[in-house]
């Protein structure tokens, strides 16, 4: 493998810019049987909270046209069990580990961040955009003042790890939120989380998901994500990790052109665990064939001239 895909993203040196997205890759270990996870640029693990969370009642998922709805409810083992039971095994694989985390309250965000700052992980991704839980998450991600506050408070306690904030698309103007993160000292932004959606079974007349609403992901949301990464890129200077419906190398290039310095592959991991590996191989080939020296050369190079 050549160095052509090597990507430095807020100081972290990734072997390639393809990272698997939180909530779609478990704790990484679930995929070891199916692919060589050390091929990945990085893994953003399932959102971790201070204590174990059981998640929402079933049913939790439903497929929709070129996408899916989910309302898992941030089920996770909690930070203590993550560090003890999951991280050591994951660390054995040569890939960067991003820990996605969240809290029900401001204090919980700060506490989890503090614990993770001393852990053997590479980067933190703060989730202020989960649409599927009542407390925390989205409450911080849809009010710019709260976004500033939680980012600022978390940033204060971090001494070692870069902080990336994952933004919600369920806002009128994502620029305001991106700016709030940057002003509060965030090192990077990841965008976007899922779009709030809903589906009804016309025979039973009941929602397909017990939570009634769920987060829409998959190829269906890609144009929205591309637009929002573009808007974010044009309003902040910190790097952006692009997320939303990526299933192939062409999608990755598109996200790079609008300003994504790296990308996350999400729902595609469910479709076929081989997809992120194929993307890495195909992306490398694309750069070579077109004499593009590195992935970073593509970042923000979309041409908007008329």
């Amino acid at each position: 493998m050549s160095d052509i895909l090597k990507t430095t993203f807020c100081g972290v040196k990734f072997k390639n810019p393809v990272i698997t997205a939180s909530g779609t890759f478990g704790y990484g270990l679930e995929y070891v049987k199916h692919i060589d996870i050390s091929r990945l640029g990085g893994i953003s693990v399932k959102g971790i909270s201070l204590t174990e969370v059981p998640g929402n009642p079933m049913p939790r998922i439903m497929e929709t046209t070129s996408g899916m709805l989910n309302a898992i409810g941030l089920q996770n083992v909690g930070v203590e069990r993550f560090l003890k039971e999951k991280l050591p095994a994951l660390r054995k694989h040569d890939t960067k580990i991003i820990v996605n985390f969240w809290g029900k309250t401001l204090e919980e965000y700060v506490k989890v961040a503090e614990i993770l700052d001393d852990a053997d992980v590479d980067m933190l991704e703060m989730n202020i955009s989960c649409p599927n839980i009542k407390e925390g998450g989205i409450a911080f991600g849809t009010d710019p003042e709260m976004t500033y506050k939680v980012t600022n408070e978390v940033k204060k306690v971090l001494k070692n790890k870069p902080l990336m904030v994952k933004l919600s698309p369920n806002v009128t103007n994502i620029r305001v939120f991106a700016k709030a993160c940057e002003d509060a000292g965030a090192d990077a932004i990841s965008a976007i989380n899922t779009l709030l959606g809903m589906a009804i079974n016309i025979h039973t007349r009941k929602p397909y998901i017990s939570n009634v609403t769920g987060g829409l992901s998959g190829p269906a949301i890609k144009p929205v994500a591309v637009r929002m990464v573009h808007e974010t890129f044009s309003s902040v200077k910190i790097p952006i990790m692009g997320i939303g419906g990526i299933t192939n190398w062409q999608d990755v290039v598109e996200f790079a052109l609008v300003g994504a310095g790296a990308v996350q592959v999400g729902t595609a991991n469910f479709v076929d665990p081989q997809i992120p590996i194929n993307i890495i191989d195909d992306l490398e080939n694309h750069l070579k064939v077109n004499n593009i020296a590195s992935f970073s050369e593509l970042v923000g190079k979309a041409d908007f001239s008329k």
Binding site: K33, G55, P59, I61, I72, Q75, F270
Partner: peptide, 26 residues
């Protein structure tokens, strides 16, 4: 049989509740 997204244990979309002793496990 449950709706499944991945079938690999990652999506947590197909939870079955099981009793083990006094505990209910997912």
């Amino acid at each position: 049989d449950e709706r499944m997204a991945c079938g690999l244990g990652a999506c947590l979309g197909c939870i079955i509740y099981v009793k083990e002793g006094d505990e209910t496990l997912q």
